[in-house]
């Protein structure tokens, strides 16, 4: 099945990103396709390039970048990002920044859209 993922909360403050991350891993292991992960609201902070948690703690930004290497498309909302300072210079990868139309695209092309 094809899954679209919407992340509405930032890293660390909420468990949302952690649950989503484990969900995505399990979905891929079960042979499903992740059509994309859309970061909205405070969710855009998950892609802040300067996240630097203590070394003995999980680095959410890096875990996500690893997912990206496995072919998962990450999309940071340009409007929500700008409002919060997640822009070309501060986002992990400039190519990830895109418009809200991408969220609707995920709803259209995925069998299931899941909000975390």
């Amino acid at each position: 099945m094809k899954f679209g993922i919407l992340i509405k909360e930032g890293p660390y403050m909420h468990q949302a990103m952690d649950t989503a991350y484990n969900f995505i891993l399990a979905a891929m292991e079960s042979g499903h396709e992740i059509k994309g992960v859309f970061f909205y609201n405070d969710g855009v902070y998950n892609r802040c390039a300067t996240l630097e948690p203590p070394r003995d703690e999980r680095n959410i930004m890096k875990l996500l970048s690893e997912l990206e290497l496995k072919g998962v498309r990450l999309i940071v909302c340009v409007a929500a990002g700008k409002r919060r300072g997640i822009v070309n210079q501060t986002v992990c990868k400039v190519e990830e920044i895109s418009g809200l139309g991408q969220l609707l695209e995920l709803c259209i092309t995925s069998d299931r859209t899941i909000t975390f």
Binding site: L100, G101, L103, L104
Partner: peptide, 16 residues
């Protein structure tokens, strides 16, 4: 901010 950003999304979705 949920209501505000939801409206911003609605306004964009309308065009599709």
């Amino acid at each position: 901010i949920y209501e505000q950003e939801a409206i911003e999304a609605m306004v964009m979705f309308g065009a599709y």
